[in-house]
Design a binder for these strands. Structure first.
Lengths: 208, 208
DNA sequence: TTTTATTTGTACGCTTCCGTTCATTTTGCT
DNA sequence: AGCAAAATGAACGGAAGCGTACAAATAAAA
């Protein structure tokens, strides 16, 4: 966990570390933890195997760092949720569209595919994912809904329950078809339509 | 695929085949495809390694049969959906409760965890899962909703969309917390409550 | 009892991969 | 230019696991 943190002034090293992480992500997401090999990662990063081991303790460590990096990108995405001066419906639509766009990315789908399998091996990694992904999103939604409820725009009994309903309506069972099928993808219009349907249904449930 | 079908009159053999499949399921679901070993499976089944290979062609074949067995159990579960003379709400509640009970089983969670990772390795296996799981469920729901709609009990534009909304409302993001967390489980009352909330919300959206 | 199918244990060849060592070379910094 | 950090290639030990071969033992069926 602390290897690449050892301060390195060389810009070349930092570039190589990043390239190793990129290659590792590609290999892990394509083949899973067990089937991915350090040599393949090194080759993809155009780096020698020894270099990989000089920056990362072992395979587990490398995988953990890839997960950490990916989770950070998730958190960054879900954090943006500042309600502006726009209507509640517009804000919810924006959130729904954002969820769909982000979660339907091929990269995200592969990430979820692989990570699930590694939870039994290392449960902490699953918790890390939950904290930075679903929990961050639900917390942001909950805050938003609480505010709107206090303004009297909607009727919300339990904001967390309502937030989860929102996410459930937006994604539906789509994630299943993404994870277990292949090449499933919706056009931008389809995603827009789906978002609108979900938002309108949710608003209907929570109207004052 | 056709190995154990070779007719065997010996009852002992059939018992051993079943024990191998059970052991394989346990090992695969616990460790994933790559990390599970034939020797461990043989040991767990209290059978020699050679016996495993005499009934199953190779590791892939064994895994495929485990998946097939599991998918059959899914299809059997989701097929039961005959609407009786009970109220629509009661039928939907029954379906929602059934979904939650079935999908929250530890065994099911482990199955989904492992299977997702193997989709890249063998996409057909993912399609097989989708056919016997989600698609079977959605088809059954769609049929039910269409009938209720024709009876004028609810207002349904696109039955498939409504069916997916139903499933989405029932499960919400629960499957995420099941798959990536551990020990997540709801009491029978909590599941009942969740089912009621989902059904009532769904009925509100679809009221005439 | 004899015959036949099935199971077992052991051992083997083969491959793959992890993580390390070491001598050498390249690279960036001052 | 000179120095220290970093990268390389090749090779190695060791472990693990797949799938097979074979001879011996066991159990069912005739």
């Amino acid at each position: 966990m602390t290897h690449p943190q050892a301060r390195t002034n060389r810009r070349d090293s930092q570039r190589k570390i990043a390239e190793i992480l990129d290659a590792a992500r590609a290999e892990f997401f394509q083949n899973g933890f067990s089937a991915a090999t350090i040599e393949a990662i090194a080759a993809r990063a155009e780096v020698s195997k020894v270099t990989v081991y000089s920056w990362f303790k072992d395979k587990d460590n490398l995988f953990a760092q890839v997960v950490r990096q990916e989770c950070d990108s998730m958190r960054r995405n879900f954090a943006v949720d500042n309600l502006e001066d726009r209507s509640l419906r517009a804000i919810l639509l924006h959130a729904a569209k954002g969820m769909l766009d982000f979660l339907m990315r091929e990269e995200m789908v592969r990430f979820e595919r692989i990570l699930a399998a590694e939870v039994s091996r290392d449960p902490k990694i699953g918790e890390y994912f939950l904290d930075n992904g679903p929990r961050t999103l639900l917390a942001a939604l909950t805050r938003l809904l609480t505010m709107a409820s206090e303004k009297g725009e909607i009727r919300v009994e339990d904001p967390l329950v309502s937030a989860e309903m929102f996410a459930g309506l937006v994604m539906g069972r789509l994630d299943l078809f993404l994870r277990y099928g292949q090449g499933v993808c919706l056009s931008a219009e389809d995603r827009q339509k789906r978002a609108e349907r979900a938002v309108d249904a949710w608003l209907l449930i929570h109207q004052v």
